[in-house]
């Protein structure tokens, strides 16, 4: 903590940090003024692409994953990405689906958020529980089933109405956003409590991403017009959430596993070296013991065979290993 406080930010780095946020916000704002539908489509498309990338990378690196968070996020965001894509295509004015009102996209939005919050809660719950973790193939089926059921509910009108033309957001939709935000908050708290399983960088990324999502959800409780300012703001938060998610994905699934693997190899090598030294010590001690035993054995063998008149003797002894089991002697009876 002190280390962070001691860092002195120069005006230049502050400017860079400001521009990193202000520039995309400015561009996106101008884009939204020019064509709100284009702005919305780009942000949602980006979200779907990142979700898909998360799935592809997370799924295919699942065998090296150091924690199962990335597998759960990959599976959850596959479903989220698909629903978000449908949300984008069904947006008012897109003209892809026959229902050309704001209800369908809002329902899809809420549906996707429910899956998202469940994914994060599930990820938070299983973080650090490697032994009890279900098989990824099984989880994939569960997530796909949830997605399909959700889409059936929405397209066959079982899902509660979220937007009423002329009135705006329904109580269900606003309540859902609060519920979902509460879920994200809970996930954030669990992640923080289990932070020993995450690198500092990932923890920071995840918590910031969750914070942005909550801000995004809050904005979406406020709009009346789906082309209005709070809708724009909500999507801006979503945009930053996506970029953070993308960075977390690259960090955790692509860069870290190899660093971790390398670290493990170095540790194993050191361990082996230690074991080899120990082994040598044991070997040396055993050797000493063997030498002692051999000395004892050799003492039992006669130095001189007895002199008996009229009989002469000669003997030869050679042990197989260091310590022998043959004994001989001559006695005059």
């Amino acid at each position: 903590m002190r280390k962070v406080l001691n860092v002195r930010y120069s005006g230049f780095t502050c400017l860079i940090a400001f521009l990193k946020i202000a520039l995309p916000v400015g561009c996106l704002y101008l884009l939204s003024l020019y064509n709100y539908l284009l702005y919305h489509s780009l942000v949602e498309l980006l979200a779907s692409l990142v979700a898909l990338a998360l799935f592809i990378v997370g799924w295919n690196t699942r065998t090296f994953a150091q924690n199962n968070l990335m597998i759960i996020l990959a599976l959850g965001f596959l479903v989220v990405g698909i629903i978000d894509l449908l949300h984008m295509l069904s947006y008012k004015g897109m003209g892809v689906f026959p229902q050309n009102d704001a209800n369908l996209p809002t329902q899809l939005w809420i549906g996707a958020r429910y899956v998202e919050v469940l994914t994060l809660l599930c990820g938070a719950f299983y973080l650090g529980k490697k032994d009890e973790f279900p098989r990824p193939e099984f989880l994939l089926k569960i997530f796909l089933a949830v997605g399909v059921l959700l889409l059936i509910a929405i397209f066959f009108n079982f899902f509660p109405v979220c937007y009423l033309e002329g009135e705006g957001l329904t109580v269900f939709k606003v309540f859902s956003e609060y519920l979902i935000s509460g879920g994200f908050l809970l996930a954030g708290i669990i992640f923080y409590k289990k932070r020993e399983h995450l690198t500092d960088k990932i923890l920071r990324l995840v918590l910031t991403a969750l914070g942005l999502t909550i801000l995004s959800e809050m904005s979406f409780t406020l709009y009346v017009d789906i082309y209005g300012f709070f809708n724009f703001l909500g999507h801006i938060f979503k945009f930053f959430f996506i970029t953070l998610l993308y960075r977390a994905l690259i960090e955790e699934s692509l860069q870290n596993p190899y660093q971790l693997l390398f670290k493990k190899i170095v540790a194993t090598n050191k361990d082996l070296e230690k074991k080899s030294i120990e082994l040598e010590k044991v070997y040396r001690r055993l050797n000493e013991e063997m030498d002692k035993a051999r000395a004892i054995h050799e003492q039992t063998l006669p130095d001189d065979l007895p002199e008996i008149k009229g009989i002469s003797f000669a003997a030869h002894y050679h042990p197989a290993l260091k310590l022998g089991g043959d004994f001989y002697n001559m006695r005059n009876l």
């Binding site: 003797f313 000669a314 030869h316 050679h318 197989a320 001559m330």
Partner: peptide, 16 residues
């Protein structure tokens, strides 16, 4: 080599 897989001992007794 004089070393075998097992211990080797031999002894000769001769009557003069």
């Amino acid at each position: 080599s004089l070393q075998g897989t097992d211990d080797i001992t031999c002894l000769v007794m001769q009557l003069n």
